[in-house]
Structure formats: C-alpha cells, structure tokens
Amino acid sequence: NQASVVANQLIPINTALTLVMMRAEVVTPMGIPAVDIPRLVSMQVNRAVPLGTTLMPDMVKGYA
C-alpha cells in the first residue's frame, strides 16, 4: 500500500504548505501520494484542512 499525504496540523485556507505540516500515512481512500511531498512545499491549500485529514489533489492549488 502506498502512503498518502496527511495533515500534521490544522492548515488554514490559503496557507502555503511546509514539510512540518505534512506526514506520510497509509490511508483509505488514497490521497496525494507521499512521494509528492517535496512538490507540495510552498503550494497553497484552497480550503482549511483539519489535523489528520488526507490531502486530495483538489485541495491544493496548482497540484492537479
């Protein structure tokens, strides 16, 4: 099973992602693959992402 990107903290809307905000976890359903974490750094979320939420492609501006 491939790990997905999960929020390590509450990420407010329009926040630029940093490594500290994300962790890799095997979850269902799968979200953004953990291998993409370096690519996500400095991209912004388009909604508030609660702690423990799996990041989906439509939550990150410019990802999809």
Rank of each mutant, 00 (worst) to 15 (best):
D58N: 15
V6H: 02
V41F: 06
G62C: 09
A48Y: 10
M59P: 01
A34R: 03
M43W: 08
A3D: 15
R47D: 14
D36P: 01
L55P: 00
S4D: 01
P29H: 08
V26H: 11
P12W: 04
P38E: 09
E25S: 05
M43I: 05
L17A: 00
L51N: 10
L10E: 13
Q2G: 15
D36R: 04
T18R: 06
T28A: 10
T15V: 11
N14W: 07
G31M: 02
L40S: 00
Q9H: 11
G31V: 02
T18L: 07
V49S: 03
G31L: 01
V5Q: 01
M43V: 05
V6D: 00
M59N: 08
V41C: 07
L10W: 07
P12K: 09
M21Y: 09
L51R: 12
I13L: 09
I11Y: 01
L40T: 01
R47C: 07
T18E: 06
A34H: 10
V35P: 06
M56V: 10
M43P: 00
A7D: 01
V20T: 10
M21F: 07
L19D: 12
S42R: 14
V60W: 02
T15G: 06
N46P: 03
A48G: 10
V49N: 01
A16I: 08
P33S: 15
S4P: 01
A24I: 12
Y63M: 08
Q2H: 15
A16L: 09
G31D: 01
V41R: 04
G52Y: 08
V26R: 02
P50H: 09
V60Y: 01
N46G: 14
Q44S: 14
P57G: 13
A3W: 06
V6C: 15
V5S: 04
N14A: 07
T54W: 02
P12S: 09
M30F: 09
N14P: 02
L10S: 12
V45E: 00
A34P: 06
L17S: 00
G62E: 14
I37A: 06
V5I: 11
P50S: 13
A24N: 14
S4G: 05
V35L: 09
G52A: 11
M56N: 09
V27E: 03
Y63D: 04
I32D: 01
N8S: 15
D58W: 04
N1M: 15
A64N: 09
Q44E: 07
L17C: 01
